[in-house]
Design a protein around this nucleic acid. Structure first.
Lengths: 140, 140
DNA sequence: TTGTAAATGCGAATTATTCGCAAATGTCAA
DNA sequence: TTGACATTTGCGAATAATTCGCATTTACAA
């Protein structure tokens, strides 16, 4: 269903600017990922997207995530014992914390950590392309 | 060859204190990992360990890494597109940076990042168990 | 409208990692 | 020192996430 995309011509532009074609599958997948506030993995995305567009395949979800990640439009969260999860690249950067007891993935508000990383990397002569930080923690 | 371990009875104690048995395989694997300054993956470890002890199997390398990680003696570095890599748990914490052009994994000196993370986590009511941070960057 | 490179679906292939099980062995108590 | 027994091991099979090959479809520039 392409209507969701029509409501949000942003995605068309985002894809175009990245030199990517606007396919209905990509539109559906992006719509789902944008409307989700948790951090779905490929299976989650596939199932939710299927509900509104049964032309998408798992392979395309994988390919779309990969392509959008390379374009800097999506961030991949690499878990150390579970399939990767994804989020639309946030306007305001943040990191992630896994609550080891509940399994929840929580966003850490504030840009301090990212800013410190940039500074430290700069001191080493590097510019950060992306960073994946997942903190594993327990409630005190 | 167990001699390496005998020279470093530390490992025996480390294992004992963690409630783990001191097997020749574990001794060989720890010896190799300790003597290495890069960050080997399981395949690297397996091959290098084999050279001095041909009784180790890949499965045991996996199991040993897992067991040592749980005991807090080894840190697993989760890569987003390659097998996990390992290092002995460092005395002084540090993070890691992947040079996207060379593929090198570089240690970031200093504990600032880890300290900031602890502080931020504490503010959220969490205590960090472990964190994996991999910064992907390019030389400026 | 059309030519063509890009994208897709399908299912098979790949690959890192885990598992089951029988045999071996480290450790602790006697 | 010895024996008992839970732990650890090797092996190969199993699992699970992800990628790939290929024939077909499709977006879109001209």
């Amino acid at each position: 269903m392409v209507s969701a995309l029509k409501n949000d011509p942003d995605y068309r532009k985002m894809l175009r600017d990245a030199g990517l074609r606007v396919t209905p599958q990509r539109a559906s997948i992006i719509t789902i990922l944008s409307e989700t506030d948790d951090h779905p993995n490929v299976e989650d995305l596939y199932e939710k997207t299927r509900a509104l567009d049964d032309t998408v395949s798992v392979a395309t979800v994988y390919r779309t995530m990969s392509v959008l990640e390379n374009a800097g439009l999506v961030r991949k969260l690499v878990m150390d014992d579970a399939p990767a999860r994804y989020e639309m690249m946030p306007q305001i950067d943040h990191d992630h914390l896994v609550d080891l007891d509940s399994g929840d993935l929580i966003e850490i508000p504030g840009t301090e950590i990212a800013e410190l990383m940039s500074r430290v990397a700069a001191e080493m002569g590097y510019q950060i392309v992306s960073h994946h930080t997942v903190i594993r923690a327990r409630k005190t």
